[in-house]
Amino acid sequence: MRYFRHPGFLIGVILLTLLLIVAVAAPWIAPMSPLETDLANTLAPPSAAHLLGTDQFGRDVLSRLIWGTRISLQVAVAVMALSLSLGMVIGAVAGFFGGWVERVTVSIIDILLAFPGFLLALALVAARGSSLETVIIAVALAFTPRVAAVMRAVVLTIKPRTYVEASRAIGMGTMRLLFLHVVPNSLPPVIVVATVSAATAILAEAGLSFLGLGVQPPAPTWGNVIADGQSFLASNPLISLSAGICIAVMVVALNLLGDGLRDTLDPQMRRSSGRVL
């Protein structure tokens, strides 16, 4: 498999696989319930019973982080799927068809891009009330114009290629041409943007949760754990720090994956001896 010759890609995949296993197996590998409070044992330092200590309600931090992986991965995957599918279609249509379709779309994209994505998400959460779905929709909406802008830019570079005209010359219809030749050749840069956007989505979810606008406590998310720990940064830094490290690991893993995909999706980079899966 050519993909796994790329070290960054390999590391990214391994990390994400581990995170995925943790997320799926959370009920079995978490030492205790992430919601169970133990008011007799609050803010405990790391011990054999609580490997990362407990928070101010005596909840096991490790268990909360393990369960938090689920929510973070859900957000990442859902945001990526939503913003990628929407943004790609919008960007491809705008770039490929041009004319007034493009002008209208580009204006809307520019207006949306002018808002900081986080503010857009904040506004939507404020309007809809906070829940996991709202967070996902809000972050995905903030990212869709970015994906669309990149997609349009890439499609504009693909459109004048001779093979596009050659496909018209054999009588290929516009839609078939768009989805058979233009979109596949536009994918690499867009996939990179999408993986980065997944990483940023996790950050955005953590940020919103930290502000109390994301997934509501006591649900275990990494952002909530950081928020819980912030009052005790001086005495118990491990609470916020361990959640921060979780976020960093997932963001790095997604970025490595994006870089690896960018490099390996380019057919010129394929070094195999001819037959490629």
Partner: peptide, 30 residues
């Protein structure tokens, strides 16, 4: 079907992600 074209740029006129067999078969499929 009656009139076809050969392009100047032999590098750009083929989709880099499609095998040449598929490229040559494409007119039939279309």
């Amino acid at each position: 079907r009656d009139i076809q074209m050969v392009f100047q740029d032999p590098y750009g006129s083929l989709d880099p992600r499609v095998t040449i067999g598929q490229s040559i078969a494409e007119p039939l499929k279309v």
